[in-house]
Amino acid sequence: MLVDPITSMWSDRLFQGTLVVLLLAMVFTSLEYAAARVARVARKEPATVGAGAEDTTGTAVEVTEPPADASDGAGDRPTRTRSDRYGRIGVSLMILAVLLHAGSIVLRGLATYRWPLGNMYEFTSALCLMAVGAWLVLVRKHPTLRPAGVFVLTPVLLLMFLTGTVLYAEAAPVVPALQSYWIIIHVTTITLASGMMLVPGVASLLFLIKRNERPAALAAKLPGAEVLDRLAYRVTVFAFPLYTFGIITGAVWAEAAWGRFWGWDPKETVAFVAWVLYAAYLHARATAGWRSSRAAWINSAGFATIVFNLFFINMVVAGLHSYAGV
């Protein structure tokens, strides 16, 4: 049997479940974001008490943290602001979504007896999983980032929606060229790196909004500019070597599959362009006058190039990678 239809059906159901849970998570992170201002205004009056606590990275979001120390003896459970409660629900839902999503991808692989990254549906789905997963790891390490979750979930949900509709592909075996263990190494690395790059791409855009204070309503509740900038840099610094490794393994595979390790196939070319842009980002971070806004623009352009490579090159331009298309 080439495809197990029952397993494949459950994979699809889990994907749909993931979409629903992510949508709910988005609702709660939006509520968290919307409620943040209320919390801030409410705390405006006794602000003098905690003025010393605001360090250089102090941001609007930090004031959403409960004044737990102040309300000692209020009860066993610390009192939480509404915004905080929404945020926690949002994160829980994201964790649930990651579990469902991982289940969907694993079942896809079991249903087709192959590595489940063989077409654009599977690739984009996994990319979204990596992005949400990366975000959860970051939020765990830096809880102050949490209220920005809605901005990560927005592009992820958009991609997930496209994945489930336009890009959807029935579970099926892949063409001979994709039957290689290199798919596990190359495509997984590229997916991981691309998914992670979504975070700095979004963070850089938010940084620009925050820094220019435009649109002002949006900028007011965002984490501080320095926090966003650092977030973008740290994730990029982690994802960039991974992306480089992914490109190199792609070249090794191409040598075995297509007869040359680099042939300026459209996909290779745009991957090269994205790589050069991220290299430019890292250089810009070390160049006076380019450090902040310009670097952020470059990082956003880098992620835009990755998305362009994923959609436009696969679906519009004919190339060797096109068999991975819809």
Binding site: K267, V276, L277, I313
Partner: peptide
């Protein structure tokens, strides 16, 4: 700065190839 400009040029010049 020149290196940065050259990097952009490289990225830009490669695009028509795709």
């Amino acid at each position: 700065r020149t290196a940065l400009v050259l990097l952009f040029l490289l990225a830009l010049a490669a695009l028509p190839g795709a």
